[in-house]
Amino acid sequence: MRIWFNQTFSTIHAVFRNLRQSAPNGEITLICTHTQAHATAFLAADEHYVEPAELTEHEYLEWCVDFCRRHNIQLFWPGKEAALISKHPELFQAIGVQVVSVADFDTLSLLHNKADFYAALPAVVAQTMDFIAVNDRDAFDSAVATLSAHHQRLCVKPAVSVFGLGFRVLDTQRDSITQLLKGVEYQIPLQELRHGMANTPEFATLLVMEHLGGPEWSVDCAGRHGELLCAVQRKKSQLAGGGQTIDNNADIDGMVARLTAHYRLNGLFNIQFKEGVHGVRLLEINPRPSGGFGMACLSGANLAQIALQAIKGKACQPPSIRYGLRVSEINTPVVMMPELL
């Protein structure tokens, strides 16, 4: 089977490694494309090609169909423009290509915007932290006043963001120079943030939220159109260098199963949680393999294999997971690929 992964994150090498472990030599060929000629994901692929940059959505969709045709792709596992591609499966089906979509177009679009996602999420499926979405300073001030009456610490994050970019805890005690000199990370002085807003009458949606101060879980999952086939919980240590532990939290297990069913999640995806004073709360659903995917598979669950078996229509036996296992990752130096001609 020829499987194509278009532009995605460098951590895809863990997925490639686990796919190879699940199949006899020569049974699958992993093809990877990226707009950067030196993408580290190329190091783990059987074949790699450079994608054209700066295509419009329609142009990129046409390019993907043509790439599948030219390279005899049988299974397309998209990262870049996954929502757009999920909207047009018939273009690929017409040339005999199966597309792996984590969810349908509307769901993927919803997950992309946390303000819309949180607002639409039924509480019986999973609970999020208290939040208020704002677009100007007056709304921000009102949100801070409202949430401060119920929560000791607040934080902010853009509604559209990845990798935690833009997340900051609101600091009501220190100014930015004090934070800088003390090496304080992921915090921002409340008054200085308000001052900056005075120069920006309206801004992209920002979430003002209760700060969840407890441990965090990253749950790597394999599913089949709403059926949760396997989920591995990684509980992150709150101590630097403490690694992560393969956990089995019952509340998280229930929420993951309900979220998978509610959004009909499929393939490989990741769901994140964090604990606050009122219990564990949902942070986000990532419609892709996580950066820690390889650590999850050390638990004894080859999630990539489970997902591929499901895609092929085969029965999936639940693996025996090694709960309590402490895992971590180490950096490995590599020689980058020579520039492609």
Rank of each mutant, 00 (worst) to 15 (best):
residue 322 R to M: 09
residue 260 T to C: 15
residue 250 A to P: 11
residue 306 I to W: 01
residue 293 F to Y: 10
residue 314 K to G: 00
residue 307 A to H: 01
residue 314 K to L: 13
residue 277 V to S: 14
residue 325 L to W: 04
residue 299 S to V: 05
residue 301 A to C: 04
residue 284 E to I: 12
residue 296 A to S: 14
residue 299 S to I: 02
residue 276 G to V: 06
residue 322 R to E: 15
residue 323 Y to K: 15
residue 321 I to S: 12
residue 305 Q to M: 04
residue 317 Q to H: 04
residue 314 K to W: 04
residue 287 P to L: 13
residue 324 G to W: 12
residue 277 V to Q: 13
residue 261 A to L: 09
residue 276 G to D: 06
residue 279 G to E: 07
residue 256 V to L: 04
residue 309 Q to G: 01
residue 323 Y to C: 13
residue 321 I to Y: 11
residue 291 G to K: 12
residue 286 N to F: 05
residue 262 H to L: 11
residue 319 P to K: 11
residue 323 Y to Q: 15
residue 250 A to R: 13
residue 261 A to P: 03
residue 276 G to P: 07
residue 307 A to D: 02
residue 255 M to K: 10
residue 267 G to I: 07
residue 266 N to K: 05
residue 253 D to P: 01
residue 263 Y to C: 12
residue 285 I to Q: 12
residue 301 A to Q: 02
residue 280 V to G: 01
residue 323 Y to L: 11
residue 268 L to R: 07
residue 314 K to D: 12
residue 312 K to N: 13
residue 274 K to Y: 00
residue 270 N to Y: 05
residue 290 S to F: 04
residue 283 L to N: 03
residue 252 I to G: 05
residue 254 G to R: 09
residue 285 I to G: 09
residue 278 H to E: 14
residue 318 P to L: 05
residue 286 N to H: 08
residue 327 V to N: 02
residue 324 G to Y: 12
residue 295 M to G: 01
residue 328 S to L: 00
residue 301 A to H: 00
residue 307 A to C: 06
residue 308 L to S: 01
residue 292 G to E: 04
residue 301 A to P: 06
residue 282 L to W: 03
residue 260 T to R: 10
residue 256 V to W: 01
residue 283 L to F: 03
residue 260 T to F: 10
residue 283 L to A: 03
residue 265 L to N: 09
residue 311 I to M: 11
residue 260 T to I: 10
residue 281 R to W: 00
residue 272 Q to G: 06
residue 260 T to Y: 11
residue 320 S to K: 15
residue 269 F to L: 13
residue 326 R to E: 10
residue 270 N to H: 12
residue 327 V to L: 04
residue 282 L to A: 06
residue 317 Q to P: 00
residue 325 L to T: 09
residue 275 E to Y: 02
residue 310 A to D: 08
residue 268 L to K: 07
residue 312 K to D: 12
residue 327 V to F: 02
residue 317 Q to S: 11
residue 316 C to F: 01
residue 259 L to D: 07
residue 307 A to T: 06
residue 249 N to G: 03
residue 258 R to P: 14
residue 277 V to H: 08
residue 291 G to E: 12
residue 253 D to G: 04
residue 277 V to C: 10
residue 295 M to Y: 01
residue 299 S to A: 13
residue 259 L to C: 12
residue 307 A to F: 01
residue 316 C to Y: 02
residue 254 G to E: 09
residue 322 R to A: 15
residue 288 R to Q: 12
residue 267 G to Q: 11
residue 252 I to S: 03
residue 266 N to Y: 04
residue 308 L to M: 11
residue 271 I to V: 15
residue 313 G to T: 12
residue 285 I to R: 11
residue 316 C to D: 03
residue 262 H to T: 13
residue 315 A to K: 13
residue 313 G to L: 10
residue 290 S to L: 08
residue 296 A to Q: 03
residue 261 A to F: 03
residue 322 R to K: 15
residue 311 I to S: 01
residue 310 A to N: 10
residue 258 R to E: 14
residue 283 L to E: 02
residue 272 Q to Y: 05
residue 313 G to V: 13
residue 259 L to Q: 07
residue 289 P to H: 13
residue 328 S to P: 01
